[in-house]
Simulated scan of single mutants.
Amino acid sequence: MILKYTLLIVVLFFTACSSNEPTKELDGKKLLEQKCASCHDLNMPPLLLKNEVAPPMMSVSIHIFDFVKPKDESGRIYEAVEFVVDYIKEPSFEKSFCDKGTLEKYGLMPSLKESVTDDEAKAIAKYMFSNYTQKRLSEAMEAKMKYDALPEGEKIALKNNCLGCHRVERDFVGPSFTKIQKKFASSQDALKQSIKKGSKGAWENSRAVMPAFGQLTNEELDTLAKWILTPL
């Protein structure tokens, strides 16, 4: 009898402990990518693709956030999240905040009640309304304008993380661009080959290995080499 009660106490103890364990917070960003990216453009700012089948997520988020009608402003995010949770389970023309033209263009989204739980929907919505904001959009647009204004060679350098190893005037992981300019000043083709095939031990007192960038086209190599050899 004593053994029976002892076992019961042990079971109740571990049950209580497990029920008090904190619930792991869901990753809204990851869920958004898994559940929504097949239809919505998640980029900020959006790419505005010609064959898009649903509005960009940025537009959806800002539109919903602006159109919900909370009792007071402090409850706007809560109301917006609750709207998303309800709408993706039971979408309808009556609930939608989209104008007639948008609904005619994209149609009504399919119900996700079989593939997205309420907790997952809340995590997605919270991420949407914290990431896709007017402020973040303005910052992203400004950054894009600055990027678009860069020389094409610098864009290639950024895309391929050249600045992760090289600096303009000082050695870092690899030699500075200033040193590279001096070494290859008379031979752009030699620099192109060094970038394309990579190198090891090409610089005095440096053990750094230059990886090969064979994926770059000849045109990209031309543009990148020309940018590197132009005084910055």
Rank of each mutant, 00 (worst) to 15 (best):
C17W: 15
G28R: 05
L137V: 09
Q134K: 15
P46V: 10
S38A: 08
L26E: 05
S74W: 10
I77N: 10
D86A: 11
V85H: 10
D72K: 12
D119C: 00
E104D: 15
T102A: 06
I77D: 15
A16D: 11
E154W: 05
E21A: 09
N20Y: 15
E114K: 08
F65Q: 11
D66H: 15
I9R: 14
H40D: 02
I9S: 11
K35E: 01
P56Y: 01
T133N: 09
E33P: 00
D99G: 10
M145C: 07
K71W: 09
P91M: 11
D119S: 11
F14K: 06
C98N: 12
L150P: 03
P45F: 02
L150Y: 14
G153V: 01
K24E: 12
E82P: 10
F93H: 15
N131Y: 13
P45M: 04
E120H: 06
F83M: 09
K89L: 04
M141C: 08
I62M: 03
E142P: 00
Y147F: 14
A37H: 10
F67D: 05
E152D: 13
A16T: 14
P55C: 07
S59K: 12
P151W: 08
S38L: 08
H63R: 13
D86N: 07
I88H: 14
A80L: 04
K95S: 11
P91N: 12
D27Y: 06
A143Y: 05
I88N: 07
D119F: 11
E21H: 04
C17T: 11
C36D: 00
D148R: 08
I9T: 15
S61Y: 14
P45A: 03
C36A: 00
A149I: 05
S59P: 00
V116L: 04
S92V: 01
N131L: 01
K30R: 03
K89I: 08
E139Y: 04
Y127N: 07
M128N: 06
I77F: 15
E142L: 07
E114C: 02
D148Y: 11
P70D: 15
S38T: 13
V116H: 07
E139S: 05
L137C: 00
T102C: 03
D99M: 07
E139L: 11
L48M: 12
V11W: 06
V10T: 11
A54G: 04
L12V: 10
P45C: 02
G75K: 04
P22C: 02
A16E: 06
Y147I: 06
K69A: 13
A54V: 09
Y78M: 08
G101I: 08
Y106E: 04
M44Y: 10
A54E: 01
M145V: 15
P22S: 02
K24N: 00
G153P: 03
L48R: 12
S38H: 10
Y106L: 03
L32V: 10
I62Q: 02
T15C: 14
N131P: 02
F13N: 00
F93I: 13
K144C: 01
P46C: 05
A16C: 14
P46A: 05
